[in-house]
């Protein structure tokens, strides 16, 4: 578990530094969403499953979505470059990482924490997969909305 902690901690600190170093605001917003995601993994590591799901649901599903849409709609003219190959690679990696807990939850007979293995309390185990799926779905939709907005803005 320490190894996972150090990997996630390095990822989180690198994402925080990327927020300040990246020049495009949208890229910085994606780095900030990565910070939120790494933070939810930290909650999982200390067996706070409900906090992890709520962190994903509120901060990624809600706040990051609002940041993406708000930032993208405010500055169409700055989006002049799009690397579709890079976008595809990042999308596949992000989808694999984000969907892993959902697959791990679905494949186990007793619902347990995917990282620590401890059992999740019964009152939230029935809804945890739906909440996680909804959070990731909203996040994916927000990225799709930004791509569509970039294309519309590029045609002006």
């Amino acid at each position: 578990m320490d190894l996972i902690f150090f990997i996630v901690a390095v990822f989180e600190i690198a994402s925080v530094i990327a927020v300040f170093k990246l020049k495009d605001i949208l890229h910085a917003a994606i780095a900030l969403a990565s910070v939120f995601f790494a933070n939810s993994i930290m909650f999982l590591l200390i067996d706070q499953d409900l906090l992890a799901i709520l962190q994903l649901f509120i901060m990624i599903g809600g706040v990051s979505t609002y940041i993406f849409v708000g930032v993208a709609s405010g500055s169409f003219s700055r989006f002049k470059h799009t690397s579709y190959i890079g976008l595809a690679v990042i999308s596949v990696v992000l989808a694999a990482v984000l969907l892993y807990p959902l697959v791990a939850l679905g494949s186990s007979s007793t619902v347990s924490n995917a990282l620590t293995g401890s059992e999740i309390s019964a009152d939230m185990s029935s809804s945890i997969q739906y909440l996680y799926f909804v959070a990731i779905f909203i996040f994916a939709v927000s990225i799709g909305a930004v791509i569509v907005m970039k294309r519309i803005g590029g045609k002006k």
Partner: peptide, 15 residues
């Protein structure tokens, strides 16, 4: 974004 990071750190510390 920096304020968001401070709030994330506070949440992590509290948890």
């Amino acid at each position: 974004f920096s304020v968001e990071i401070v709030l994330v750190a506070a949440a992590l510390l509290a948890a």
